[in-house]
Design a protein around this nucleic acid. Structure first.
Lengths: 232, 232
DNA sequence: CAATTTATCAATCTAAAGATTTAGAACAAA
DNA sequence: TTTGTTCTAAATCTTTAGATTGATAAATTG
């Protein structure tokens, strides 16, 4: 499959010149990829990325001069569709989490076999996100730990459950910053009715002002359920 | 390696009786596992989990009676150290995300080869978290999408930067649900001073009420910076 | 040093929020 | 059918919130 496409062009960024040379040779052995450039400087790497628009970047994230994670973020913000694979010496869960958060398409340890790197390059080139099984496990442990507190908070009774459908609508509009007049207009009801609903909401949530109701809602999974909070 | 340990005990929960039987036979063929129980009811399954304390649970998460995700969450809350692998008919990113969020140790599609299931069971029994490569990619796409808005939001000017130290203090107390009297008491200043600060905050954040200022603060990385928001 | 920013406070408004009581209509459940 | 819940609304009242103007002292900056 790979054989039938144009060779993917790869940019290498690693402050360790020896390692850089090693990867370069490894990739040159692979018929599917061309090394479009190689540099030991993150800043130069970012400029090369802009200039040569490679398909793929292998980025060492443990560099002294400039943080590799920051470099990845800058490249992602350019929005050039360049896929970045993070290379790291450490299987640190926080590093993995942060790299994936900012948009790395893969995360490989330098100690891993070259086959693993090629596998990652193949998958990422094919539009997928790739991470070795061992690191995936590491990532998820960290991920689940982040949610643990929140999940425990869920254990306590959620007063939002007592709200009626209409009260939820009103509260939802409150969490969007509306005042009572605005809510009345949007729901086509009178402002006094809104006040009635709001007072009922206060009773049920055991608060006595708008802002507190909104804060309760946001802290207890209401409204923008699109937003998932990660306590890290 | 597995041969030298006691057989791990597995509880099966799947509303589809045929599928349940299939998995049971599959596991019986595996010398490393014993089926400790099998049921088509999530509720009965939870009770069996309490009673028999299996090492592992294979939980179908697409059940009509009770949501499998909810069942996983209940089992996690029991904190019995039972590892749960989610079985699903769908490779839906949101389902995967939610299952892993609440603590599933693995996620396997029913359509996957039995070897995949055994692999997952082996890994999870060994204390790791396991997800097939294809699903991992799916998960991370969703994960990165969640963070994209936030990253972009960072790009736009953050009006919070214009606040003075005192104004930040006042805003912080606002985001904790205090009214002006409360803030005055906590900062040992008069209520009119609080009002002055609040009015200045409004100017700078370009809003005109307390709740909106609080919402702006929460949506723009103010205060609880421990919390990372995942816009999903 | 002069100018600016920041933090403090008062007084005075208007507008909005919040509490409380009462009540009719629609609807579902017992 | 009766009972209960939900949604609607008005009237009334008290309390906050919010806008505006003006003023002082301290700290900062040019």
């Amino acid at each position: 499959m790979r054989e039938f496409r144009t060779k993917a062009r790869v940019l290498l960024i690693d402050d360790n010149a020896d390692h850089l040379r090693g990867i370069k040779e490894l990739i040159n052995l692979e018929s599917s990829y061309d090394v479009a450039g190689a540099t030991t400087s993150a800043n130069i790497g970012i400029n090369l990325a802009k200039k040569y628009r490679p398909d793929l970047i292998l980025m060492d994230i443990n560099m002294p001069e400039k943080d590799g994670l920051q470099a990845i973020q800058e490249i992602e913000r350019l929005d050039l569709g360049i896929k970045v694979i993070a290379l790291s010496g450490y299987d640190d869960a926080d590093l993995i989490f942060r790299a994936m958060k900012i948009g790395a398409k893969g995360y490989i340890l330098k100690t891993m076999a070259s086959a693993q790197l090629i596998r990652a390059m193949d998958e990422v080139t094919a539009g997928k996100i790739y991470m070795p099984t061992a690191l995936t496990s590491r990532f998820f442990e960290y991920f689940q730990l982040s949610f643990k507190n929140e999940t425990e908070a869920d254990t306590k009774e959620n007063l939002l459950a007592y709200l009626t459908a209409r009260e939820e609508e009103v509260l939802d509009l409150l969490t969007q910053g509306n005042n009572y007049k605005g809510i009345a207009a949007k729901l086509f009801i009178s402002e006094t009715t809104v006040k009635t609903h709001v007072n009922n909401i206060f009773q049920k949530l055991q608060v006595n002002e708008k802002t507190q109701a909104v804060l309760y809602a946001l802290n207890n999974g209401f409204a923008n359920r699109r937003r998932i909070k990660l306590a890290v």
